[in-house]
């Protein structure tokens, strides 16, 4: 089934490349944020960034090459901001475009889909916030519990590593459970909790397919996460600017994985909806 869904998704992308626009816009915004943060120790950006960076991280981080040490952290906050302000609308817009692509004779309208998603901004934000908070707690809790209750020993480090990997798997599961809430919200015009319930209902029937549709592309992000963890070492081995290139590559990776995850699951949702209609 997963092959069929991907085949439909790729055919749709080939026929309507505009469905990639939301992810492209998100990537462009993230790129702008990264560029601004990269330039933050220099004028004119210092006027805005110098004081908070100095107060939170220390004055040294306003200087080359130490600014690259905090760039990943700053960019992470920037990405969250992009998601909150703009990204959730882009996810909604993509789902709306997939729904249009499935309607006979209807073309894909980017601006109309944007408007439709923007009108449901708070609901989309609610779903994204629930997924984000749950994933954040799952990924951070093991570190917090182990570091606050156990002494640093080889076995505690190993346990932390095992729990971190398990956390990543559970985070995939959480995303898979909630993934159909976006199309339920945009296509079926449900409320936040109705959309979440609908998502759970669909996942119950296509559990493994959904898990695979979410986790296979996300594995690319996990691989990228390992590269990011080695950022400091890479910086020492090569040159500080490598951090910038790694983060830029992360934007491209997110563009690919987000497109695959959201378009394929939206397609599966549409197929499921059509099957349900036919069976009625």
């Amino acid at each position: 089934m997963i092959r069929t869904v991907w085949a439909i998704t790729f055919r749709m992308v080939a026929k309507y490349p505009a469905v990639l626009l939301p992810f492209l816009f998100k990537a462009i915004f993230e790129g702008i944020v990264l560029a601004v943060l990269f330039y933050s120790p220099r004028p004119p950006f210092t006027a805005v960034f110098a004081k908070p960076i100095k107060n939170i991280f220390g004055a040294a981080y306003l200087h080359y090459p130490y600014n690259f040490n905090i760039l990943p952290t700053l960019f992470y906050y920037g990405q969250v901001l992009v998601m909150v302000i703009f990204g959730v609308i882009m996810y909604g817009m993509a789902v709306a475009m997939v729904s249009q692509a499935h309607s006979e004779g209807e073309g894909v309208r980017a601006f109309g889909s944007f408007n439709r998603a923007a009108r449901r901004y708070f609901a989309l934000l609610g779903i994204w916030a629930i997924i984000y908070i749950l994933s954040f707690a799952i990924l951070k809790a093991p570190t917090w519990i182990i570091t606050s209750t156990m002494q640093r020993t080889p076995s505690s480090v190993m346990l932390l590593q095992v729990l971190s990997y398990a956390g990543i798997a559970v985070a995939f599961l959480v995303e898979a459970l909630f993934i159909y809430a976006y199309p339920a919200l945009m296509v079926e015009r449900r409320g936040v909790f109705g959309a979440i319930a609908r998502s759970f209902g669909i996942v119950k029937h296509v559990f493994f397919t959904t898990i695979l549709l979410v986790s296979i592309p996300r594995l690319l992000e996990v691989l990228f996460m390992f590269v990011k963890q080695k950022q400091q070492g890479l910086m020492n081995l090569t040159f500080p600017e490598i951090t910038l290139y790694i983060l830029a590559a992360g934007i491209v990776t997110s563009f690919i994985t987000d497109s695959l995850v959201f378009l394929s699951t939206a397609n599966l949702f549409m197929l499921k909806q059509e099957t349900e209609k036919e069976s009625k």
Binding site: I32, A35, V36, Y39, P41, R42, P43, P44, F45, H63, Y64, P65, P240
Partner: peptide, 22 residues
């Protein structure tokens, strides 16, 4: 915006000096 940032921030002031020195 990006072009002005690149022009004004790319090669002037303390940061660029630090970069070259490093």
């Amino acid at each position: 915006l990006l072009a002005s940032a690149a022009i004004s921030g790319c090669d002037s002031g303390t940061y660029s000096a630090e970069k070259r020195f490093w």
